[in-house]
């Protein structure tokens, strides 16, 4: 049974210039303990999807349609009070800017204990030992829990934030650019650690990144987002070996590989569309080398072209790299 099913999620931001179509008809499902990744350029709606799952959208955001079924309950319809119990207890998050996601005036351990005591009825001492456990898990010295955030290095903060996300043993952890601010070596170590912990505790994990290489390392399935749509979704190997959507292909050829022949990195012409007035039909058509009249007139639907390989395109490409 699926842990999370997002069905046709549509979300707008109200602005003075009109509605911004940030997330449009996004659908995907996650099984328990599964690791998926969402990739796409900045502004394509990855973070908006994540924030919608926790219902932490800014005041001007509006979920216009669709449902988010989590363990059979529709999170869109939950009251704020019920939603508070879901946050962190069932779905927690590692934020984009881990550097700033700790309050500077409280001790790091205290901030984790606060989350634990909000959701589990444990004593201060039990909460502390729980924090110590999770510190060990992410490779931090438990003695550090009585220090303030500014006394941590960037990598330590990131680990602490991950320990915080694990603290209530949630079913799903959303990691929004969990390692972007870190240098590559620390990045790799932390990603591996998260993945080990995830497998050990059978937590589902949703990675969000603009860097498909980072996602490929840890996600079992990848969803590629473009301008508020999921344009392609498949298991990681398929996305890399047989990308079908022209955007995914462009994304693949835009990053260098150390294997194979030397090649010129392809550049995608044009810019991401203005979501105040998205292009008609397929949102990718102005930049797509294969666009036809059909693409301009009508929006394609996400269709299964292979087992578990979904593409939203009128002309899915069938070539291997």
């Amino acid at each position: 049974m699926a842990l999370l099913t997002v069905q046709d999620l549509t979300m707008h931001y109200r602005t003075k210039l009109g509605g911004v179509h940030a997330v449009d008809g996004v659908s995907f499902a996650m099984a328990e303990g599964e690791a998926i990744g969402l990739v796409g350029e900045s502004g394509c709606g990855k973070t908006s999807v994540a924030m919608a799952l926790l219902r932490l959208l800014p005041d001007n955001a509006q979920i216009l349609g669709g449902e988010i079924l989590f363990e059979g309950r529709d999170l869109v319809k939950l009251s704020e009070h019920e939603m508070r119990k879901v946050r962190w207890r069932s779905i927690s998050m590692v934020f984009q800017a881990a550097m700033n996601s700790l309050n500077p005036v409280y001790r790091v351990g205290q901030q984790i204990i606060e989350a634990i005591q909000q959701h589990l009825s444990v004593s201060e001492r039990e909460a502390r030992s729980r924090v110590a456990e999770h510190y060990n898990l992410v490779g931090l010295d438990p003695k550090l829990m009585d220090r303030y955030p500014h006394e941590y290095s960037g990598g330590m903060k990131q680990r602490a934030v991950i320990a915080m996300a694990l603290a209530c043993s949630p079913k799903l952890i959303i990691a929004d650019e969990p390692t972007t601010a870190l240098d590559v070596i620390v990045q790799d170590r932390i990603l591996r650690r998260i993945n080990e912990v995830r497998a050990e505790f059978n937590m589902a994990m949703m990675y969000i990144s603009h860097d498909i290489a980072v996602i490929a390392e840890v996600a079992e399935r990848i969803g590629v987002m473009y301008a508020g749509w999921i344009v392609e979704m498949a298991d990681t190997v398929s996305v890399f070996k047989h990308p079908a959507h022209p955007y995914t292909i462009a994304l693949m050829s835009a990053f260098p590989s150390i294997k194979g022949d030397k090649r010129v990195l392809a550049q995608l012409p044009g810019e991401p569309p203005n979501l105040l007035a998205p292009p008609s039909g397929c949102r990718f058509h102005p930049r797509c080398p294969h666009a036809t009249a059909e693409c301009v007139d009508e929006a394609p639907r996400l269709e299964e072209i292979d087992k578990g390989h979904f593409v939203s395109c009128w002309h899915p490409q069938r070539r291997s790299q």
């Binding site: 508070r84 800017a97 700033n100 700790l102 005036v105």
Partner: peptide, 26 residues
Amino acid sequence: REDYITTAKAKGLPDKVVRDRHAART
């Protein structure tokens, strides 16, 4: 507007706790 306020909300803390303990304190 700081990220740690979003974190505090994401932790499922009640509105008042986020306001008084996290925002107002700083």
